[in-house]
């Protein structure tokens, strides 16, 4: 279902292919791409909340992890640091989700602030466009013995915007698709 939704949004970008192929992204095209990228980030946020929730069945969590992984380009990593630990730990996306699922709390609530900051798109040497979307997560974990932990983390998520081709009714159609890439996770003092 999500796949279809992304295809539909991507197809709306078809009309601007020629303008977009230039160095600067046309503002209207950029806004359409931002919407598509934001859809993917919102999907990721939703999946993270489900994976972290202790009420989620193991099999369901595995299925959601599969969906979440599909949002990312191959080899994407999460670089995680905290206020108490400056050094960044690097995890493959799947490993990050598995660690989230295995956290030793009896109740976990993950909420998202209503803030997203979308950068400009810069073109990299191979012609792919790259940008960063910043979002903020609130984590609360409680144990049955009353111990609780809260933090707010900033997630800077790489987005790659690539030209792709698909066959529709025998015709080759070019469209622009968005994939997520490396994510930097930092704990904030806010």
């Amino acid at each position: 279902m999500n796949y279809m939704k992304h295809i539909l949004v991507a197809v709306t970008l078809l009309m601007g292919v020629s303008a977009f192929a230039q160095t600067n992204v046309d503002p209207r095209r950029k806004q359409a791409i931002d919407s598509l990228a934001l859809e993917k980030v919102k999907d990721l946020s939703k999946y993270i909340s489900i994976i972290g929730d202790k009420q989620t069945q193991f099999s369901e969590a595995q299925r959601v992890m599969d969906r979440a992984e599909e949002l990312f380009a191959p080899d994407s990593e999460m670089g995680v640091s905290s206020l108490s630990r400056e050094e960044i730990s690097y995890y493959k996306v799947r490993e990050y989700f598995e660690r989230l699922m295995a956290l030793n709390y009896d109740k976990v609530t993950i909420k998202w602030y209503d803030i997203h900051y979308i950068s400009d798109l810069e073109r990299q040497p191979d012609g792919t466009y790259v940008g960063v979307i910043t979002i903020y997560q609130r984590f609360e974990g409680t144990s049955d013995d009353g111990m609780s932990y809260k933090d707010t983390t900033k997630k800077d998520i790489t987005i790659y915007v690539k030209k792709k081709e698909t066959q529709i009714a025998g015709r080759t159609i070019e469209f622009w698709d968005v994939l997520l890439g490396d994510v930097r996770v930092t704990e904030t003092s806010a």
Binding site: Y113, I115, Y117
Partner: peptide
């Protein structure tokens, strides 16, 4: 006030996050 389902302390934090210069791009 646009934020939905946020606790009071989250709303206070959210104001600070809006003010923060979140990226070099920003």
């Amino acid at each position: 006030s646009v934020g939905q389902g946020l606790t009071d302390d989250m709303k206070a934090t959210e104001e600070q996050l809006y003010a923060s210069t979140k990226q070099i791009n920003q």
